[in-house]
């Protein structure tokens, strides 16, 4: 078990190396590299940050500063499916807060929390640029739900538990 995780990680590090080489990354490409790393590892634990710092030849403190500045980057694992509820003004006036409450209730987590099975995490995000479909929920990178009502929440969640 232990070993397979290690092996898996080695593979991910190798893939990260390949990316860094491909784009001839130096310190100015830090954000690109972090995007890639988070895509590979799911989050950015300190070890990964140290690794990147060494690779790009910049201080770890700088990497840490960038990771903590941008809300897209996270040091804590998130759920397999990240549920992002838009709390932007256009969604807010269409009842986004009630939607958020319903998700909290159905999943039994608070904002930014992860469900016990690791399947979901719940996040409030700013305007997703889809205001014409407000209120909007985005799950992962590709699944958009528009004009969502609180009563549709259980059904949406079920799409990912099957």
């Amino acid at each position: 078990m232990e070993k397979s995780i290690c092996e898996q990680h080695e593979k991910l590090y190798a893939e990260l190396d390949k990316f860094i080489e491909e784009i001839h990354a130096d310190g100015s490409a830090l954000i690109e590299v972090l995007h890639k790393a988070q895509q590979l590892f799911g989050h950015l634990p300190v070890e990964v940050q140290e690794y990147i710092a060494e690779k790009l030849n910049i201080p770890v403190s700088k990497v840490f500063g960038v990771v903590t500045f941008y809300s897209f980057f996270t040091m804590k694992p998130r759920g397999k499916h990240q549920i992002k509820v838009c709390l932007g003004t256009a969604c807010y006036v269409k009842g986004a807060d009630r939607l958020m409450d319903r998700f909290k209730e159905e999943l039994g987590v608070e904002e930014d929390g992860v469900t016990k099975d690791g399947l979901f995490s719940l996040h409030g995000v700013r305007c997703l640029g889809a205001c014409s479909m407000a209120p909007v929920v985005m799950i992962g990178e590709n699944d958009f739900y528009g004009r969502v009502t609180p009563d549709e929440v259980p059904k949406i969640i079920r799409n990912y538990t099957k």
Binding site: T89, C127, S132
Partner: peptide
């Protein structure tokens, strides 16, 4: 960077 909530024209 279109971040102004409510704006979706650049997109």
């Amino acid at each position: 960077d279109e971040g102004e909530p409510g704006t979706f024209k650049d997109r």
